[in-house]
Amino acid sequence: MKKLSFLAGTFALLWIGAAPVFALSADEIIERMERNQTHPTSIIEGELVVSDRFGDRRSTFISHTEGASRFLVEFTSRDERGQKILRHDGSLYLYYPDARETIRLQGAALRDSLLGSDISYEDMTGGRGLADDYRFTLLGEERVEGRQAYKVELEARSTNVPYAKQILWVDAERFVMLRGEQFARNGRKLKVTEVLETTETDGYIFPSHLRVTDQTRRSSGTEMKITSSQIDVELPRGIFSLEELTW
């Protein structure tokens, strides 16, 4: 009797401990994934490589972020040196040092391609959760690159998004994206996003090397690599101001 009670109790404990994993909804999975990618503050250096049949175009950048709504990225590579992007709450500003000109982007312009890459200004600077644009459906679990992952379908709420449908594979243990596929309204696969490396800094796990491949053009794609990251650091005062943007 004692042994049976013990076994029952152990089983119940294991079941209760495991219950949250099985009971996670698609919304919760995406929310946990986005939480991993949203840092209180961060300083990240990286590079963007845009490839086509003529070769690679490499751009390097350094970014400062605060939460999901403030972001300053400065390009440090030769062709774009001094160009900056500032996200301040709901507005996005571009600064071109040659013309000393600041452009404020709003609305659909936020989805414009960054430096001709497969990444948009909004992708780069965040500030808008996937839940604002998509409905989520959990399709099940699969193994991706040797890791158990949730497979989540994202269906666009409106036509104001670049992809009518996406499928994301989210690591079931670490809640970081492992793979993504983006589709047009007619079901044609447009892009494939592969996370080649992840990094963990201060408890946050996020992609540090990802590749976006254009399925409609051969030899065409974008890679983004993070070369250094510091999370939860003190940022310079006034870093997210127009003054800093135009310095």
């Binding site: 507005s91 127009l242 003054e243």
Partner: peptide, 23 residues
């Protein structure tokens, strides 16, 4: 491609910030 106008002048200017989004 981007900036049609690129006039420059000899000038002295100051930038006095007023909060983060005004000056």
């Amino acid at each position: 491609l981007d900036d049609l106008r690129d006039e420059t002048s000899w000038l002295y200017s100051a930038y006095l910030p007023i909060g983060e989004r005004a000056y």
